[in-house]
Each structure stands twice: as structure tokens, then as C-alpha cells.
Design a protein around this nucleic acid. Structure first.
Lengths: 186, 186
DNA sequence: ATCAACAAATTGAATATTCATTCGGTTTTC
DNA sequence: GAAAACCGAATGAATATTCAATTTGTTGAT
């Protein structure tokens, strides 16, 4: 692994464990086995490292979410997507916590958020299609997106905080609740 | 308003606007029209002010949420509760943002969270009753609590970030989605 | 009422620490 | 032998906290 990558990973780990402002560059340097100066060879400043981590994770969203969707009914595709995101978080708890507690304003600017919107355009399209084809409620797609993300985050929070172990059954419950919230009532 | 109160309010305002670590005690002192030393007369340290703000808001939850519940069916009571919390956030955007981006670990410890659990015991009871009486799904109450809170937060985020104006209709949608997610299917 | 004596509140300059960033020099790479 | 990567001590700015000194408030005796 090259030094730039080591710096990014180390920063991610430390910042999730200790918080951004409790993580001095000197510590990042030490734990990444790199000199402080080297960090500034690759990055303008501390915040730029954070921005790169953010963009890295958002990019993941775009590909992870839509991976291996079954060629079945809409609900099954939704469930696959939901689980894709959930499992991504389970497999990358650092990414989850980073997005939860580090990737917030003013650290991450509105501008950067807009810049990363293109990565999740396909997810938006998925829900727009669902509305058109009458699978899900005809409400603003932005509302759907936010609520669905909120559901995955809620499930993940319980797991991270060890308040539920999120076994098969509990996961099924969460997924069912999420689907019920968006599915069209007839 | 006494000085202690002024210090708390000023800290809340600044910390929401600038972030915790971008808010020096000297600035809090100046904007609260108080000397730095006075702050340390009332508080042990910076973090203790944050903890007091946190407890203040959690205490609000307990009373605000259960206020003026209609003496009608369970669903109506749920909607009233949901709107109580939503409107509390709308009326206290500082409280909302504080809980969202400041009241996170490691600033707020697990211990403090446990300490504040008693304030929301009645909310928990409300959902337990709903499960018993077959109004809502028979799933772990902790899951319900987290998902419902997540729904309100999602709605509020959209409003705060100005992505939806959250007019009557949009609010109705969000509330409907939230209820559908927990209501029992027959 | 007046005042002495004490306690509580208030002040802000001084302290000590922490930390992001710089930069002159060294090593590695091609 | 030039360019790129790398080093880490030195710099300078920021800031949480302390504390000795001052002001304000309270109490009870005269």
C-alpha cells in the first residue's frame, strides 16, 4: 500500500475512534509510518484528507447500492438495494461512523455534497421508476431517499451501539418496516 | 436572564453555527457579556456546558412528546406525538442541529446517554402498549423507537437543508410513511 | 439604619499546552 | 543529475484553564 493510501486509512481510523479534532497530524504520521512532512506532500491540509475520504465513500454508495440487483419484481430489487447498503455499512463500520459523525457541516461543505450528487443519480432514478410504475407512493423522491437512508442508518445505529444484535429476524423486521413505509397502499 | 443561562444559550448558538472546536471560550465569554473566569465559576470545563445542554434537550423530549395527546385512537395519538417532536425541532432548530452534529460520541458519552434514558421511559411505554394492543408490529421496541425518531429526523433534515419546504402536504406524506412503517398489517 | 465581616460572584491577564503547517535539507527514483 | 518523494525539528498561532485581585451581596450585631 502506498503512503498516500496509508495516510487516508489511518486518518479514517483515528478520526472515527477519537474525533476529528482529537486527531493530530503528528499521530496520523506516526501510525501511518510516515513523516509529517510527507502528509503535506500529498495533501494541502488536514481538511483535504477528510474531503478525499468523504468522496471515496460516496463513490462507493453509487456502485455498491446497485450491485447485483435481482431481475425480479420491484420490491425484491428494493430489498436487495437496502441490504446492499446495510451490508456495506456492516462490512465498513468505519465508513458508517465517518459519515455519521465526521461528514457533517461545517467540515463537509454544501458544495462538496453537491459535487458528489452525481454518484447517487441512479438511485434516484430507481425510485422515480417505482413511482411511475405505481410500486411506491407518489411523494417527492427527495423524501423517499431521505427516509430510506434514514431507515438503513437506524438499523445500523442499533447494531453499532450494540442495542440490538440485528440478527436475521430483526433485520427482516427493519426491512419490512422500511418497505411498508414507501409501498403504495391500494 | 442570569449569567449561567446566558452562557448556555450562547454556547448552544455558537456551537451550532461554528462547530464545537471552532468555538473558543473567549468568544463565548464575549458574546455572553461575561468574563472567561465567570464561565469557570459555573462550569468545570467546556465539555460540562455541552453536557448540560444535552440534558436540557433530552428533558424536553420527555415532556414535549407526550403533551396534549388526543383522547382518541392509537394512530391519532401516534401522529400527535410525531408532530409534537417535529414541531419542537421546527421551533428549536438549534436543539435539532445540536443533537444531530454536536451530541455525538466521544463528546457525549454512553454513560450520559444512559443517565438520560429515564426521561423517555414514557415514550417507550407508549409503544409497548401499542404492541400489546395490536396496533403496531410486534418487533423489538428499541427498533421502533429508533426508526420513528429516524423518520422525524429525516423530515427535519430536509427542511433544515432546504431541500423540501415541508408544507402541509409533504408533512402529511412523511407522517403517513412513518405510520405505515410501524402499523400492524392484517 | 449602619457597619463590619464574611461569602459569593466576577474579572481578565498570564500560563502552559497543543497542534497545523512550513521549509531547508536528505534520500530515493528514473 | 534532475526531479520527485521524504523527513522531522522549528515556528507561530490558538486556546482551555488558572488564579490573584476586585467587586458585589448577605448577614447579624449594634
Amino acid at each position: 500500500m502506498d503512503k498516500k493510501q496509508r495516510i487516508i486509512i489511518t486518518m479514517l481510523e483515528l478520526v472515527v475512534k477519537q474525533g476529528l479534532h482529537a486527531t493530530p497530524m503528528s499521530q496520523v504520521a506516526k501510525e501511518a509510518n510516515v513523516a509529517v512532512g510527507t502528509i503535506y506532500h500529498y495533501f494541502e491540509n488536514k481538511n483535504q484528507i477528510i474531503e478525499e475520504i468523504y468522496l471515496m465513500i460516496v463513490q462507493d454508495y453509487g456502485v455498491v447500492l446497485m450491485a447485483n440487483l435481482p431481475d425480479k419484481d420491484y420490491k425484491s430489487q428494493y430489498e436487495a438495494m437496502w441490504l446492499n447498503l446495510y451490508n456495506y455499512f456492516v462490512g465498513n463500520p468505519l465508513a458508517f461512523t465517518f459519515m455519521e459523525i465526521v461528514a457533517v457541516p461545517p467540515i463537509i461543505t454544501k458544495n462538496l455534497v453537491r459535487l458528489s450528487a452525481k454518484h447517487i443519480a441512479n438511485i434516484r432514478d430507481f425510485f422515480l421508476k417505482g413511482i411511475e410504475e405505481n410500486h411506491i407512493k407518489d411523494v417527492p423522491v427527495r423524501l423517499i431517499l431521505q427516509m430510506v437512508l434514514g431507515d438503513v442508518v437506524s438499523a445500523m445505529r442499533l447494531k453499532i451501539k450494540d442495542e440490538l444484535d440485528m440478527n436475521k429476524e430483526q433485520l427482516k423486521f427493519a426491512l419490512e418496516m422500511s418497505w411498508d413505509s414507501i409501498k403504495k397502499n391500494n
